[in-house]
Design a protein around this nucleic acid. Structure first.
Lengths: 191, 191
DNA sequence: AAAGACATGTAAGGTGTTACATGATTAG
DNA sequence: CTAATCATGTAACACCTTACATGTCTTT
């Protein structure tokens, strides 16, 4: 059981519905945990059945009603136990890098296109994270926030996400350029 | 079906057994695809049944016999199709970051310890990747290898892995130090 | 003789992904 | 009235993880 702790950690930040959580996972939490909406709905049901979160129905007039959740004392204790246990090493699964790994043996063109496409997405994420960090620290500068600001957890994980996407951007960009140059060089040799 | 392409890409590099592949996945391929040995054994069986790889028994005298695999023409075509299809965005699952996300609400001490532990592991990986890159490029300097060297795919993915682990190292280290300082500051306030 | 690396596999159970289904409400 | 967003769920299937099982060969 793994997703549960990511959900609990995300819910520490406030009361959220499955739908809201899905959006949060899609942007910020995806820095360290990937999950699709359906996983969240079923995980929330399980967590509530086990008493680690508590749900509350919210009647809305402008849009469909929803059910929002908060972490219970038992949930906090579960997180405490989790953090005291050695974390398994992280896992990555990145199809685009599989393609690059194989690029000596297959057509480079579609790989290059995808690298360029992903560079744009990475650049957009960088911008989102920059703004998220600015928003979190309000009128403090970064050093002050890091020393005294609160909450610090979400700020730190967002910082990691920012760096990761910056590295992605640079690697995607330089790799695409490099493969283009090599393809061009080969075309000239062939000519 | 996802793991298959990572296995095919890894096998482009040469003939490997399941056991060897498991070690390769443990170090270099884990940069972009995580898999445990058992996954590899069963995936290799499936891939061979589908004709995407071909196995060959190797009799060894110094150690138990093994079965090594090479990518077939059909396997190459499968990789070609794969690379021509839009890659799904990558996924990350990192329990240690889940803990940091929650650090405002739980004891920081065990999280800090784990960050320091992981920083050491990241530093060791950085060293391994540096050596792998040196080994790949032989007597060329990096710029020359990037322009003309071969194979370029494994070099590029290793470069990405190196940067990722460098960033990990820096983030683990600075985050651990920061959380220590904040914990110390609180202890003084409390005193 | 025991420990450790090499080498491969079966089976059970847990997790994740995908397709589908349903319906409310707002904005254009 | 159509599309988009909000909101939640069921079910089937694919995939991954873990525990266990087995045996070879080398090193200490």
């Amino acid at each position: 059981m793994a997703l549960r702790h990511a959900v609990l950690a995300a819910l520490l930040d406030g009361e959220y519905s499955g739908y809201q959580l899905a959006k949060i996972f899609d942007v910020s939490v995806s820095n360290f945990w990937h999950a699709v909406p359906q996983q969240l709905y079923s995980e929330l049901a399980k967590l509530e059945a086990e008493g680690l979160i508590r749900g509350r129905r919210v009647i809305q007039h402008d849009r469909p009603n929803k059910r929002v959740y908060t972490v219970t004392q038992a949930g906090l204790e579960e997180l405490e136990r989790f953090a005291a246990t050695p974390a398994k090493p992280g896992i990555i699964r990145e199809n685009l890098l599989v393609m690059v790994q194989a690029v000596d043996h297959i057509s480079a063109a579609p790989v290059i296109e995808q690298l360029e496409e992903r560079a744009k997405i990475a650049a957009a994420k960088v911008e989102i994270f920059r703004r998220t960090l600015e928003h979190l620290r309000g009128d403090m500068d970064e050093e002050t926030y890091l020393r005294h600001g609160s909450p610090i957890g979400p700020y730190l994980t967002c910082l990691r996400g920012l760096r990761f996407e910056q590295e992605n951007y640079e690697w995607f960009t330089s790799t695409a350029r490099l493969l283009r140059e090599r393809t061009a060089a080969r075309a000239e040799e062939g000519a």
